[in-house]
C-alpha cells in the first residue's frame, strides 16, 4: 500500500544570514528558475532537443548545498543538473549553448542537457545512468585523500538511485575507506512514475544509509535555509576527514520527469499542495517579513535573472555549429607525437 506523502507546512522562521548572503541565495534560485522556464519554452520551439529534466521546485537543494562548498571541492551530479552547474559557476551562456548543441557549450554540444561538464569548476557532470555518478564520486574522493587534499566530493542523486547496487557499493566503499564524500540525496518522492513507497521496503532513506555506519541528516529541501545549514555541518564533517556523510534533502519536482512524461502517476492536487511549499516564494516572503528584502529588490533580482537568461539565449542562438568534419574528435585524448 502506498501512503500519500505528508505535506508539511511551508518553510518559515527566521533566516540566520545577513542580507547580502540571503539575497545571493535567492538570486541563485531565481536564476535557475528563470533559466529552466526558458528551457521549457525553447524545448517547445525545438531549439533544445533530447531529454530535458527540469529542476523546478527543487532549487533550494542545489543552491543551499553548493553554497556550503569550496572551489577545490568536486561536484558529481545527474541528468537533472542544470541548477547545480549554474550555481557552481558554469556560465549560463555555456549551459544554454550546450542545450542548443553548439560548440560553445560547456560540453562542446556533445553532451546536451543531461551531460553538462566543466573542468574549471570541478563539475564532473551530468551522468544519465541512474546511480552512475556515485562510484565516480568515491574515486574522486579517494584521489583527494591519497594526494593529501582536503577537498569534499559532493555527489547529488535522486532517491530512485538508492535502489541500485551502485548506491550500496559506493556507500560501503566510502565508509570502509573513510573517504571525503558528501552524499546528497534529493528525495523528490518520485523516480519517474514510481513513488518512493512503491520502490523501497525501507522508506526512511537515512536509515538505509546508516546501515553503512555513515552519519546522516535530513533537511527540508524546499527550505534553502535548512538545506544550507545542514550542508555546512555535513561538509565540515567530511572536510575534517571524519569520513562520508549522507544528507537527505526532502523536496519535490513541480514539473514532469522529462518532457515526455504524461504524469499519469500522481494527482495534480499533490503537486499543487507542494507548490505552497515552493522554495522561492516562501524564502522571499520570509526575507521580506524580516526586512531583508523589499519588493523592489525582489523585482530587480528577477529582472537581472531574466536579462541573464535572454543574453544566454542570444549567445546560444548566435553561436556557430561545430563542423561535421570534427565528428571524431574527443574520442581519445590527443597525444603529442614522440
Amino acid at each position: 500500500m502506498s501512503v500519500p506523502p505528508m505535506i508539511q507546512p511551508p518553510p518559515a522562521g527566521p533566516v540566520p544570514w545577513d542580507k547580502t548572503f540571503a539575497k545571493k541565495l535567492l538570486a541563485d534560485m531565481l536564476r535557475i528558475r528563470r533559466m529552466e522556464e526558458k528551457c521549457a519554452e525553447l524545448y517547445g520551439e525545438q531549439k533544445i532537443r533530447g531529454f530535458l529534466h527540469l529542476y523546478i521546485g527543487e532549487e533550494a537543494c542545489a543552491v543551499g548545498a553548493l553554497h556550503a562548498l569550496a572551489p577545490d571541492d568536486n561536484i558529481v551530479a545527474t541528468y537533472r543538473e542544470h541548477g547545480h552547474a549554474l550555481v557552481r559557476g558554469v556560465s549560463m551562456n555555456a549551459i544554454m549553448a550546450e542545450m542548443f548543441g553548439k560548440a560553445a557549450g560547456c560540453s562542446r554540444g556533445r553532451g546536451g542537457s543531461m551531460h553538462l561538464f566543466d573542468a574549471a569548476t570541478r563539475f564532473y557532470g551530468g551522468n544519465a545512468i541512474v546511480g552512475g555518478g556515485l562510484p565516480l564520486a568515491v574515486g574522486l574522493a579517494l584521489a583527494d585523500k591519497l594526494q593529501g587534499r582536503q577537498a569534499v566530493t559532493a555527489c547529488f542523486f535522486g532517491e530512485g538511485a538508492m535502489a541500485e547496487g551502485a548506491f550500496h557499493e559506493a556507500m560501503n566503499l566510502a565508509a570502509l575507506w573513510h573517504l571525503p564524500v558528501l552524499f546528497c540525496c534529493e528525495n523528490n518522492l518520485y523516480a519517474m512514475g514510481t513513488a518512493l513507497a512503491r520502490s523501497e521496503a525501507q522508506t526512511d532513506l537515512c536509515a538505509k544509509a546508516s546501515s553503512y555506519s555513515v552519519p546522516t541528516m535530513k533537511a527540508d529541501g524546499m527550505d534553502v535555509v535548512a538545506v544550507h545549514e545542514a550542508a555546512r555541518i555535513a561538509a565540515q564533517h567530511v572536510r575534517e576527514g571524519l569520513g562520508p556523510f549522507f544528507l537527505e534533502l526532502q523536496t519535490f519536482r513541480f514539473r514532469a520527469h522529462s518532457m515526455f512524461d504524461p504524469e499519469l502517476y500522481r494527482d495534480k492536487a499533490e503537486v499543487e499542495a507542494w507548490k505552497t511549499r515552493g522554495p522561492l516564494h516562501t524564502f522571499s516572503a520570509r526575507l521580506k517579513a524580516e526586512g531583508k528584502l523589499t519588493e523592489e529588490e525582489f523585482l530587480a533580482l528577477d529582472a537581472k535573472a531574466n536579462a541573464e537568461v535572454q543574453a544566454a539565449v542570444d549567445f546560444a542562438e548566435a553561436a556557430p555549429w561545430e563542423p561535421i568534419e570534427d565528428l571524431l574528435n574527443d574520442v581519445h585524448t590527443p597525444r603529442a607525437a614522440s
Binding site: 532537443r49 551531460h115 561535421i324
Partner: peptide
C-alpha cells in the same frame, strides 16, 4: 555508425 559515442547535437548525431 561512426566510431564515436553518439553526440547530442542534431547534425552530429545524424552524421554519426
Amino acid at each position: 555508425s561512426e566510431e564515436v559515442p553518439i553526440p547530442y547535437a542534431r547534425h552530429m548525431e545524424e552524421a554519426a
